[in-house]
Design a protein around this nucleic acid. Structure first.
Lengths: 101, 101
DNA sequence: AAAGTACTTTCCAAAGTGTCAAGTACTTTC
DNA sequence: GAAAGTACTTGACACTTTGGAAAGTACTTT
């Protein structure tokens, strides 16, 4: 009567799984918010890659982008949304489920 | 004087990181060896996907493929090599390093 | 006026992934 | 013994993703 259990692999969130985005999510998960430059330097990617990947996460509503000014210079900062934190925890749990403990 | 520490993201093994191969490695990490069909059913992929991904892991020498017979029917089984186990542990550690704990 | 800051966007080219169909080499069934 | 099935493997394709390089935007600073 029971369906074969679905392998946890199917629950991996591919938006979160890619190395760069995984690193972005991880960095944001521990900080309230991070500036573009700090994030870029922390995970060591180019401006264009960070900008693009952040846009993908923003569109998915996992990340909130806030634009402001530091004096007269523009400043972009990113933070996880509640949905982003939920997805992040679930993704880590799925990885543990697959890895088996 | 100190170089900025390299982000652990750079140590992710892309051969191991893809969802299907990650699942294969995980499954093999807990079993001494698994038959093609059992592996296919466990991670729920098509024959062709499993065959190809296994070939990639075999070429990298992370997996050993053994062909034998079950009665008169061919049987293919896979197991991790020592290198495969080492790479698997290192990859999990890298994920933890990125996720931070 | 020229150069720099802080990103964003566009234009590629390369690589990865899966599906589907066909191929291989036997074995089993009708 | 011809047809169908088993156990994979391989090849042809279509698609998606990803990153680099370069140009663009909108100001600010020198």
């Amino acid at each position: 009567m029971s369906m074969p259990a679905e392998h946890p692999r199917h629950k991996l969130n591919e938006l979160v799984h890619s190395p760069v985005r995984f690193s972005i999510m991880a960095a944001l998960a521990r900080a309230e918010s991070l500036d573009f430059k700090d994030l870029r330097d922390a995970i060591q990617v180019s401006d264009s890659v960070l900008s693009k990947q952040l846009a993908i996460l923003e569109k998915a509503e996992y990340v909130k982008i806030k634009k402001s000014f530091a004096g007269k210079m523009p400043r972009t900062s990113a933070s996880l949304t509640a949905a982003g934190r939920a997805v992040w925890s679930a993704h880590l749990q799925t990885l543990r489920d697959i890895a088996g403990g």
